[in-house]
């Protein structure tokens, strides 16, 4: 019984292969059949409304979809809260085998799995980040990588925070000392110290991207220790923002514009804008290149932007200083990391 089934299956596969091979040859296709939509899938560790890492990528995809002409031109499928890597790997494989054109593994923790899956689907474009490795040295040609230079905006926000602080103490609520969280924190600290020698930058890590409660306690601790300007990274900072709001400290957002969470205390945010790299990946795929490029989001290429909140005005001289720093980083005159 089993062998009959498997033979049947083989036959079906063979026929399908033959058909697909013959298909284009039989119809040289000048006919304008409606173009199939581009199918994009994304697997991410938190939710599309996390106000941070995942929302940034999802909203960029939606923006590109609108520019392309809606769901009839580009389909988006997503799997959220894939904080367990084996689950994420299964989802990535599912999307690829369902024939999605571009599959984005949005999390540096998914890299090892992706390196195993990508070679099995040579016609699928994969992308992952935050990362710089396209696995080209393993002979893999269909993986893009993307990495935000989070230290750049960190440096700018650190500059603003240091100059605005009355107490001269800044608090940084870090999640895990890795990836863009680490470079952001390092850039913020360095920028603050360069702008105002003698400023005290307190850094904590909770060891988790999702522990909202401990993140809130970290913010409490920073404020009790004299900090009046706070920042942090990851989806768990919502807890810290709540504390800052209650205690009247100012907040600097990272990864996404966090103004809506606390419109009276968010001074400015570094926002990741993935739209240009998504568009570039789509264009490259159309031109026949399925991977191999490591993108960087920077202030210079518009992948990173500093978004101010009008309700919390920044004094003009500090804003001017921030603009100067942004220009310096773009020109390469300022190195945002020590």
């Amino acid at each position: 019984m089993k062998s009959v089934l498997s033979r049947l299956l083989m036959l079906v596969v063979l026929v399908a292969l033959l058909l697909s091979a013959c298909g284009p040859a039989a119809t040289p296709a000048p006919t304008q059949a409606p173009e199939k939509p581009l199918r994009v899938a994304i697997v991410m560790p938190s939710s599309i409304t996390d106000m941070a890492f995942s929302q940034g990528m999802y909203e960029a995809l939606v923006k590109v979809q609108q520019e392309m002409g809606g769901p009839s031109k580009m389909e988006i499928a997503y799997s959220e809260n894939m904080f367990k890597v084996p689950d994420a790997a299964a989802a990535i494989r599912d999307y690829a085998s369902q024939g999605y054109d571009i599959v984005i593994a949005h999390g540096s923790q998914y890299g090892t799995s992706l390196a195993q899956i990508a070679p099995e689907f040579p016609n699928t474009t994969f992308a992952w980040g935050t990362a710089t490795d396209t696995f080209a040295d393993q002979g893999i040609k269909n993986v893009f990588a993307y990495n935000p230079s989070a230290e750049q905006g960190g440096y700018v926000l650190g500059t603003i925070a240091a100059l605005m602080s009355k107490t001269g103490v800044l608090g940084v609520c870090g999640p895990v000392e890795a990836g863009d969280a680490k470079t952001y924190v390092d850039g913020f600290k360095y920028g603050a110290e360069q702008a105002r020698p003698g400023v005290k930058v307190q850094v904590t890590y909770t060891g988790s991207f999702s522990d909202v409660s401990l993140m809130a306690a970290a913010a409490e601790t920073h404020i009790a220790a004299g900090a009046d300007m706070l920042t942090g990274s990851s989806q768990s900072v919502v807890g810290a923002i709540g504390v800052a709001k209650e205690k009247g400290a100012k907040w600097f957002g990272q990864q996404w514009d966090q103004t809506s969470l606390a419109p009276d205390i968010v001074v400015a945010s570094q926002v990741y804008d993935y739209t240009s790299i998504i568009k570039d990946m789509i264009a490259k795929r159309k031109a026949g290149t399925l991977g191999g490029v490591a993108y960087t989001l920077t202030l210079a290429n518009g992948g990173l932007t500093i978004k101010y909140n009008d309700r919390v005005p920044v004094p003009p001289e500090i804003k001017a200083k921030a603009d100067e720093v942004i220009k310096g980083i773009i020109d390469g005159k300022i190195n945002p990391l020590p």
Partner: peptide, 9 residues
């Protein structure tokens, strides 16, 4: 304590 809801908070 935290005064918001987030998935898997």
């Amino acid at each position: 304590l935290i005064n918001l809801f987030q998935e898997n908070m």
